[in-house]
């Protein structure tokens, strides 16, 4: 089966991302990190104790980020590459890795915004290479029986409804 168009993540890319997120979490003192697609789907996360609902978080963060980019256009700014929300106990930092990938970082009072921004910026340079390097050009093909089995699973999910 032909390779699909879209964002495809292979083992090597995911290993590098997981490794990088773990290090970023450690050095920046952040509580939760997630890589998501620009269309709002989670790719991978790094967290010890704090586990927000990732699907909703990814969807909302990607939408907010997309809206922020449009705001930049309306204001004749080239781009806003960062979204930051400050809360009482928790802060949210969303930044653009590539056209298709965003990085979410949450952190509390135990660290400083500047520290998170500094290390996030450095990590993004490496992450960009992961997604824009040659690895992005090749991915395994889907199993040839996927479509038939997925059709049966869909019938099963919606039966009697």
């Amino acid at each position: 089966m032909a390779r699909r168009k879209g964002l495809v993540i292979n083992d090597r890319q995911l290993d590098r991302c997981d490794d990088l997120l773990r290090k970023l979490k450690e050095v920046s003192g952040s509580s939760f990190l997630a890589l998501i697609s620009a269309s709002g789907q989670p790719i991978t996360t790094a967290s010890d104790e704090y586990h927000p609902e990732t699907l909703s978080l990814a969807s909302l963060a990607a939408s907010s980020f997309a809206a922020t980019r449009q705001l930049a256009k309306i204001l004749d700014e080239n781009e806003f590459t960062l979204l930051f929300h400050e809360g009482k106990a928790l802060n949210l930092h969303v930044s653009q890795v590539t056209d298709q990938v965003l990085l979410i970082v949450t952190f509390g009072r135990q660290t400083q915004v500047g520290k998170v921004r500094l290390y996030t910026q450095r990590a993004m340079e490496v992450l960009r290479q992961v997604f824009e390097g040659p690895d992005d050009e090749e991915g395994p093909a889907m199993d040839s029986g996927f479509e038939a089995d997925a059709g049966l699973a869909i019938d099963d999910l919606f039966k009697d409804l």
């Binding site: 699909r4 168009k5 879209g6 964002l7 495809v8 993540i9 292979n10 083992d11 090597r12 890319q13 995911l14 290993d15 697609s37 269309s39 789907q41 790719i43 991978t44 991915g139 395994p140 889907m142």
Partner: peptide, 9 residues
């Protein structure tokens, strides 16, 4: 354009 994460299956 689906997101396919082969590593995470």
């Amino acid at each position: 354009m689906p997101l396919i994460n082969f590593a995470a299956r």
